[in-house]
Amino acid sequence: MPADLIKVSDLALGYGRRKVLQGITFSIRRGDFLGVMGPNGTGKTTLLKAFLGLIRPMSGSIEKSSVTGGHPLFGYVPQRESLDFHFPLTALEVVLMGRFGRIGIFRRPNAEDIKVTHDCLSQVGMDQFAKRPYRQLSGGQKQRVLIARALASEPEILLLDEPTNGMDIVSERAIMELLTELQREKQTTIVFVTHLLSTIERYAHRVALITSEGNLLVGEKERILSPEVITHAYKLS
């Protein structure tokens, strides 16, 4: 079984001709709990989208390997504000979308898919809200539903974009402890993007820090979160 789920070599990412990130080489190991941080606009979300295959590298490569030999299955948790609140969907219907990749084309979800959906809602403590309209849920509840949706795809790796953005401290702690539990009990590999130093410091095992110049520093959090490295990355005087 390969130890690295994702291996990035000399990667450059950007939009049009503008490079956002360059010269990136690192790997994500099975069972990692990696926090990605950096100043605003340095490409944290861009990096996640490149892992998902939503953005093509300008140069370099992203190799992905699964237990089964193919590509690993990704569970993606987008920023919850990016979802359209006009759609009249229940929490159950949102989570069921996580199964769509496993259901064949022109096929409809079956009883097994519904069962998995309920199990995932239970796992995040939201099964009692299954029939509640998604848009009526609080920020923390929506985030749990989106995590359940990612889990419904039975992923090997969970990618979360700002999972605690805009939350109060209680909700933030609940979400991060849920992720810690998933990583510890199911060995799910977790990569989360955040701009909160305190969240990274408390929960991540390893840190990927994008500097204001678009370079990436990866390592154990004790080394990356040193005052010298942070001062350099954020150009603090």
Binding site: L52, G53, G98, I103
Partner: peptide
């Protein structure tokens, strides 16, 4: 027959692509 494909393409295209749709 394509209700799930139409739904995810309209609601969350990035998630759809991540799922291989």
């Amino acid at each position: 027959l394509a209700s799930k494909e139409f739904l995810i393409s309209a609601y969350d295209p990035d998630m759809g692509r991540a799922l291989g749709i």
